[in-house]
Design a protein around this nucleic acid. Sequence first.
DNA 1: CATGAATGAGAATTCATTCAT
DNA 2: CATGAATGAATTCTCATTCAT
Lengths: 195, 195, 195, 195
Amino acid sequence: MKPSPERREEILAIAGEVFAAQGYNATTVRKIADAAGMLAGSLYYHFDSKESMLDEILSAFLDELWAGYDMVLAAGLGPRETIEALVTESFRQIDRHGAAVSIYQKESRHLSAHDRFAYLSDSQRKFEKAWLSTLERGVAAGVFRADLDIRLTYRFVRDTVWVAASWYRPGGQHSPEEIARQYLSMVLDGIALRN
Amino acid sequence: MKPSPERREEILAIAGEVFAAQGYNATTVRKIADAAGMLAGSLYYHFDSKESMLDEILSAFLDELWAGYDMVLAAGLGPRETIEALVTESFRQIDRHGAAVSIYQKESRHLSAHDRFAYLSDSQRKFEKAWLSTLERGVAAGVFRADLDIRLTYRFVRDTVWVAASWYRPGGQHSPEEIARQYLSMVLDGIALRN
Amino acid sequence: MKPSPERREEILAIAGEVFAAQGYNATTVRKIADAAGMLAGSLYYHFDSKESMLDEILSAFLDELWAGYDMVLAAGLGPRETIEALVTESFRQIDRHGAAVSIYQKESRHLSAHDRFAYLSDSQRKFEKAWLSTLERGVAAGVFRADLDIRLTYRFVRDTVWVAASWYRPGGQHSPEEIARQYLSMVLDGIALRN
Amino acid sequence: MKPSPERREEILAIAGEVFAAQGYNATTVRKIADAAGMLAGSLYYHFDSKESMLDEILSAFLDELWAGYDMVLAAGLGPRETIEALVTESFRQIDRHGAAVSIYQKESRHLSAHDRFAYLSDSQRKFEKAWLSTLERGVAAGVFRADLDIRLTYRFVRDTVWVAASWYRPGGQHSPEEIARQYLSMVLDGIALRN
DNA sequence: CATGAATGAGAATTCATTCAT
DNA sequence: CATGAATGAATTCTCATTCAT
C-alpha cells in the first residue's frame, strides 16, 4: 500500500521548498505538482492531503532537531558550552532542514491551533524550558549577565538563531559551524569593541 | 458618497490584526468583516480590494518608519548613537504598528514579486544601505568589532530587532524604549559576563 | 447571517427532487444549481454543504412524520384502527414529502453509518417498535392472524407502504387516502377472492 | 492471456456485495479491489470498466430470472398457481442473487437512461406484462378480487416481493420457499383474521 | 496476473468581488 | 452605508482508468 519512500522524500523536499518560498496557504497543490513534474492529482497517490505533507515535513524536522538537542542536554555541559552546542546544532538543522525551519517560523503560530499540529506547541514549550533553564543556570554560575530580563534574553537568542533560516542558503561560503561561531561571538560578547 | 476616513482607519486596524494573526492568505474578507461587525460585501464600499487593504497597511507603516529613520540618519550622530537611535525608533514602530510589522515579516518576501508591492524591496534596500553604512562607519571608527562579517552582523541586528514583533504586545510591563535599551545592551555588549 | 427561509425551502425542494431521481451520490451540486437557476458556488451561500441539504431534507421529513405518528399512537385506537391510521398517515407523507421518502428508502442504510445521520437509525428503531407492538396487540386481540411470523408481517406491511413512494406522483388520479384505503384492503384482506 | 472465468466470478460476487451495500456510485473501484485482495488497477485485467462489472452482474441475474419465469409462464398454470410460482421463483432469485436484486432495486431507475442498460427497461416491461396479464386472468376467472385497481395490485405484489431483498440474508432460519409461502399467504388472504 | 505510478476529468467547496436594493 | 444574493475563478481532492514493468 505504501508508495516508495524515496519518491515520497523527493516530493516532500520539493513541497518544503515551495511552502517555504511562498507560504503554506499561498502554495497550491498544483504548484507542488508542477515542481515535481507531475499532475496535481498524482500527489494524492503518495500523500493524503496537502496538510499531511506539511505535517510530515515539520515532524521530521522536529524529530531530528530533538534528537540533536536531547543529546546536547544530556551531555552535562556547563551553561556556556550548552548554549554553544545548542546554537551550533540549530545552525546544522537550518542547514539540513532549511525549508522546514522557514515554514515553522512562519506558520507554527496559527497551525498550533489545529489538533493535528498540537505537537508544535509541545515542542515550543520543551524548547523554552531547555533554553530558559540553561540561561538561568548560567546566570547563577556567574557566566551570564544577571542584569538582563531572562525571558527577553531567551527570546533574543532564540529568534536571533532561527530567523537566520530566512536568508541562509546551504552551500554558501560559510559553513553552519562557522556561522554558529560568529553568531555566538556576537550574542555572547556583543558587537561593540571592548576597550 | 465618500467613505469616512475614520471608519477606514478602524477597519484597517482590524484587518491588520487579523492579517497578522492568521496570515494574509489565510485571512478571508469575511473574517475581517465579521471582526468589523459588517458583511463581507460591505467592505467594498470602503476599499477596492483585500489587496489594497494590505497595501495601505504596509505603506502607512513604512511611511512612518522612514519618517523616523530619516530624521535619525539626518541628525549626524556617531555610529553607535545612530544604531541606538535606529533600534529605539524600530521598537517604537513595533509598539505602534505591531500588526504591520508582523505582516511585513511574514509576507514581504513573496509580496515583493508583485509590481504593486515593489516599494517593499525598495525600502528593504534603503534599509540595508542605512544599516550597513552605519556599521561600516562604526568599524572604521573603532567603535564596532572588525573581526565580524559585516553582512552577518547586519542581519543579526536587523532580525534581532524586528522579530520582536512576533511576541511584543503593546501595553505590557516594558515600554518600547526599555526593551530597546535591553536589546541594545545585549547586541552591543553580549550576554556573557565580562571579567 | 441566515439567508431567507423561503429561498432555502425552494432550493431544498429542488435538491430533493434531484436526489430522489438520480440518487444522492450521483447528484452533483452543479445539477442542483442548474435546476435552481444558479451557479454551483451560489448554493453555498444558503447551505454549508451538499450533505447538509440532504440532512435538512431528511430531518424535516422525519419530524413531520413523527408528529403525525405520535398523534396516532397517542389516540388510544384499537390495533386495526391504529394500523389503518398509520398507513393513511404514511401515504399522506409520501404525498407531501415524496422526494424525502424516496431518498430515505435508497440511502438510509449507508447514511446511518455517519454520526450525522444517526437519527435515521433511531427513527428506524422507534418505527419498528410502534408497528411491532401494534401488530402484537392485534394478534393478542384476535384481530390479526396468529399463524404468521410477526417480523415478516411487519416488514411486509412496512415495505408495502413505503415502496409506493417509488411510483407515487402527487396530483394523480388517486388521493393518498384512496391509495391508503386500497392498500389496507389488500394488506388486511388479501387479493384473493373469498368464497 | 485470458483471465480465468473462476476469478472473474469471484470478483463479480465481491463487487456485487459492495455495490449492494454501499450503492454503485458510492463504491469505488478501490473498495472492490481491497475486498478482493488486489490493487485497483489489477481489476482492469479482468474487466473493462466498473460499469461492465455492474452490467455483468445485472444481466446474469436477469438471464437466470427469466429462465425461471419463462418456464413458469410456459407451464400453462392457472392464475393463482402462476402467481404462486412466480413469487416462489422470485424469492429463490433473491436467495441466489441477493446483491444483484438490491442493486437492481436501487439503481435500475437511473441506469435505464443509458443505452447500455436499455435491457433493464425491456425486462421491466416484460415483467409488467407477465404479472398484469396473470392478474387480469385471475380477476376474469373469479380467483382475484375485481374491486381493486389492477395496476395498484400489480405494484403492490411486485414491490412486496422484491423489497424483501433489502433485509433477506441467505442461510437464515427461513428458506426462500418458506418465506414465499408466508408472503403469498399474506398477499392472497390478508393479515386480518377472517371470521 | 498483479503492481506501482501515474493521468485527467470532474467533484465539492471556498472566496474575492459585484451590484441592485 | 450596509445587506443579501449572487458570480466565477480557483482550490483541494477523488477516482476510473491506463500502462510499463
